[in-house]
Design a protein around this nucleic acid. Sequence first.
DNA 1: GAGAAAAACGTTTGCGCAAACGTTTTTATT
DNA 2: AATAAAAACGTTTGCGCAAACGTTTTTCTC
Lengths: 332, 332
Amino acid sequence: MVTITDVAREAGVSVSTVSHVVNGTRFVKADTRERVMAAIERLDFTPSTSAQSLKKNVTHTVGMIVTSSTNPYFAEVVARLESELYEAGFNLMLCNSGRDIDKQRSYIRTLKGRRIDGLLVLESVLSDAYLELLGSCSFPVVMLDSDTPSLTSVSDDSELGGYLATRHLIEQGHRAIGCIAGPVQHHQSIRRFRGFQRALAEAGLSLEPDWVHAGGMDSESGEAAVRQLCRSRRRPTALFAFNDFSALGAISQATRQGLRVPEDLSVIGYDDIEIARLLRPALTTVRQQTATLCREACRLLTQAIADKRSDVEQLHVAPELIVRESVAPPDE
Amino acid sequence: MVTITDVAREAGVSVSTVSHVVNGTRFVKADTRERVMAAIERLDFTPSTSAQSLKKNVTHTVGMIVTSSTNPYFAEVVARLESELYEAGFNLMLCNSGRDIDKQRSYIRTLKGRRIDGLLVLESVLSDAYLELLGSCSFPVVMLDSDTPSLTSVSDDSELGGYLATRHLIEQGHRAIGCIAGPVQHHQSIRRFRGFQRALAEAGLSLEPDWVHAGGMDSESGEAAVRQLCRSRRRPTALFAFNDFSALGAISQATRQGLRVPEDLSVIGYDDIEIARLLRPALTTVRQQTATLCREACRLLTQAIADKRSDVEQLHVAPELIVRESVAPPDE
DNA sequence: GAGAAAAACGTTTGCGCAAACGTTTTTATT
DNA sequence: AATAAAAACGTTTGCGCAAACGTTTTTCTC
């Protein structure tokens, strides 16, 4: 590898001058500067980030731990954050934890060793052990979509989202409303459920325990939910699925069982993934303001990095109801 | 930050001993080793990767440049590769190029500076300038889904995939077959088109120029294709969309125009994204063997890194036809 | 044209670590 | 008990770079 010393020799100057030309940290006479730049060009010199980091104690690297970047919503968040960070001069180290505490531990160790400047965490479920690990980090940490009191976070306001979705169903005339929730540890799912309850209570509707189906936020749980509901005596006329995937599964299974959506069963989702608008019927859903969410997360993180402080802050981004075709008044 | 010197002082040994304990590179008496490990634990010491890299000239880092990781197929590839690399002891630096040559150049510069051990590239379109940049890298490069003669690559055998898709349509009795292709520079699209042509020729069918719609491999181009086809005098009875997204768009638009799928129009996609099986009708498509593809790419890269050589190699992975519901015999 | 000030560059150190090279201590051998 | 051999650890250098500290050269000033 070409080093700064090679360049200095080639240009007939000292390493110091090369360094100052590269970094613009000291005045260098025009023709000297040009000689140096020519040498850099000729030798294809790129300063070693490792050496720079060792010296300057910053790495311009941000770690990102995510449960699994295959989930389209997660994938979008990752891509957006990467772009934002690039603009801010940081590179992204991507880590898929797969919800495995050993991998999480291992990644945090690695990232500590790499002396990352900051960390972003996007996980649907957080264990206590994990939170403790995150607390032990000497760099700023920003959580996405999970408000943990001890850490800075930026989240979709899922309570509001759950409320908006449910109220929409109620306004369309539904009084028998079920939901396809996520796992009980899933914090955003809990918040959506709270919004769901609030809207029901406000409308004086009771919550039928049989109509709540806790699943894994995937299409399978949507399918399972519909299968289960069809076996019960009374069937809800509308379903609030806590993400678009389970909504898809629900619609898919309903269609297979001869139920028409939305005539026989209305379904509302959550997330507004790209294909939501492409389905027939197009999916009515709640859209997370991903762009805002990511911008804010990036802003909080880079600011904490720049200021070298990190007072805990909890930000919420309001979601938006997207009305399409999968919800209609009940047929009665 | 805690350094190896701090640990040495805390444990009452030399830095050398600490280093050897950490790396297991020399025998250390059991109780000395325990003292050192206790000190490491107490101080929460993690060796600085920057310093190690500077010394050992390896970074255990692999760069990955991808057009955009939001695309679900790309997202899956990224996630899989990250997992494979993690197993092999590497971390992933994710870079979204957005097809912008300036960003590509900038990322390659950064990655060179970071002295990455290897690079993975997943781009749908490659410019000459970009290829030259990639050629100038001193670390091994593995391309995904784009066979460029000068670089090692692992690709889906899209010619075969295009052939399989088209032959399936023909076997179902279709003789009027159109396609929704990708942009002309898109190499995988070109290969799919070649397979398409080969299958048609083999069946003695002619290729109707009006029935070929070149788009952007997104849902919009699928919609546009169907709109265009419906305006032409004679309409094909089947469509081969070069990816699932454009198939989705096509089906969505066809439904809107009152065409039933598959009764009035059969549609076959490519990729087999997760939701393909959830649609009604479930999407008949060609599945890329992503797992194999990623495993092979990772194997080639890590091997090239380990061997410090990199003889160019071109690998192809055979895709698989997935028959579902969106293709049926024509109605005549 | 002597001295001071400014301009332009050079020498050297230390960041944290691995490992080559060295030293000391212990154990075995006679 | 003297010596050799083996065991266990220490000292030091250099990886590539930034920048503190220094030096030399040039330009003013009177």
